[in-house]
Amino acid sequence: MKKAIQILACEQAIKTMIAPHSRVMVGGFGLRGYPEALVEALVDSGIGELTIISNDLGSPGVGLGKLLTNNQLKGLVGNYYNWNPEVAYAYNEGKITVDLLPQGTFAEGIRAAGAGIPAFYTLAGVGTELAKGKETRKIGERDYVLEYSISGDVALVKAHKADELGNLVYYKTARNFNPLMAMACKHVIAQVDEIVPTGALDPECIVTPHIFVDVLVVNGGKAR
């Protein structure tokens, strides 16, 4: 059971849902389809010791990159930090931990968590440095590596529109990891461009059914 959907301001949503040491999933790929206003509010909150589970960490001082500049991070789980070289430096200095995963493994790990699957085998990365210490198993003719599902406390997702129940639709390549993350966390805050009346979204086109969503924010706007 879930409480009725709440429509909050970003600041309020972040303070209600996130605490120090939270594992926070954040949608987005290369500064597209990430919840900008929620990330700003997370930075402004100053909440620290966070583990951020996201494809990348924006750019230096931009988007999620601000959390690193602001020393709010304990660890990262993700795929590609070449767009923000400050991540490599912070990692080398021992300031943060980084769990680096192939992109498809990262995506599937999140999907698996949301779908109640604890682990899965994949070909990606077998024999490479990223599979060091991981269990491998021969299935048929090939070796596969065991990868665990990835879950979080709170997901910050970006969608295009929500209806008043919390059903979500996305926009072009801004979809990326958002629908997966909405299923993989205990609590979900969705930043949307617009909230439309329930019934206004075509049920055939809804990507994330409302049961996964707890809180809606309209681009940093006010609570209703």
């Binding site: 991540v87 430096y89 493994t105 994949t122």
Partner: peptide
């Protein structure tokens, strides 16, 4: 060389 930390989708792509 310690300057980059990223893998992208290449491992999935070459195997898949």
């Amino acid at each position: 060389n310690g300057k980059q930390l990223g893998v992208g989708g290449a491992m999935d792509l070459v195997s898949g």
